[in-house]
Write a protein that binds this DNA or RNA. Structure first.
Lengths: 146, 146
DNA sequence: GTGATTGCAAATCTTTTGCACTAAA
DNA sequence: TTTAGTGCAAAAGATTTGCAATCAC
């Protein structure tokens, strides 16, 4: 049994998912561990509940869709994931919780990260009366060329 | 019977909705005319299908929800409305089709326009390989202060 | 054990669809 | 007429919920 899984350029100890769940005060159940590994072991990704579920089943991980939804929301609350809204039809969860924005390819519902460094939104008025400013989402919609 | 309806600072001839529908090549039916008046007679607004439907019923306009959805999409295709996605739960339609962005008050699902003039997004990379850039949406999420 | 978590199936909610009926041109 | 548009009720999707069974501690 391998002791590490590769993550982009760096490696992550196998017990990494366990640590993250513990830190997030989420009981490391079989399902949550498996999902955490699916989500965080590779490069950054954008998943929908349906896609993640399919992936889990493919890899022989038995999880119900309800648990997928629960976990995605719990991970999001814990700051391990970020929700991205681009398309009324489905919700995307992004493993990249850092500062960045998105390209959205409308034809095939694909999201691509745009690193946040370098991007600036200027000329914004201040938040409306009685409101605190939160996250700024920039979505650049793009279309496949004919 | 008044001959004009007020629209912000300017006035609009009563037959205005009719004109818009004709121009958009949409048959001016009783329902579409009524909805066009509800949508375009006052200030710019952000409506959901449900809200528009309720409003129509309140004013004694008999329309089915299916027709509301049909009309909202037809108006959007005709460029009279613009769809705004901020919240996976429902779709908003904006009567302001000009260049602008939005504040979104998460607590109560309210959208506010931010005039586009003056706002600039700098540092964007070019669209991904084989793609043409479309609209850029900037959503500033804000929260009610305690 | 005990309380948190899971799975299932049913429920909910928004949006879409099929089709007979009605109205505009 | 002729064809587009409407309403209804059913269907479709995505997501949530209730609750008994199961698991982590």
């Amino acid at each position: 049994m391998v002791e590490h899984v590769v993550h982009g350029k760096e490696e992550r100890p196998y017990g990494w998912a366990l640590q993250r769940l513990r830190t997030a005060k989420l009981r490391p159940t079989r399902q949550r561990l498996a999902l955490a590994r699916l989500l965080f072991s590779g490069c950054d990704r954008h998943v929908t509940a349906e896609v993640l579920h399919g992936e889990a089943l493919t890899q022989g991980i038995r999880v119900s869709l309800a648990t997928i939804y629960n976990s995605l929301h719990q991970f999001t609350e814990a700051g391990l994931l970020r929700q991205v809204v681009v398309d009324g039809a489905r919700t995307y969860f992004d493993t990249n919780v850092g500062d960045h924005h998105h390209f959205f390819i409308e034809e095939d519902g694909v999201l691509l990260d745009i690193p946040g460094s370098g991007i600036a939104v200027s000329g914004l008025p201040e938040a409306p009366e009685g409101c605190t400013q939160g996250r700024i989402d920039v979505i650049v919609r793009v279309n496949r060329r004919a």
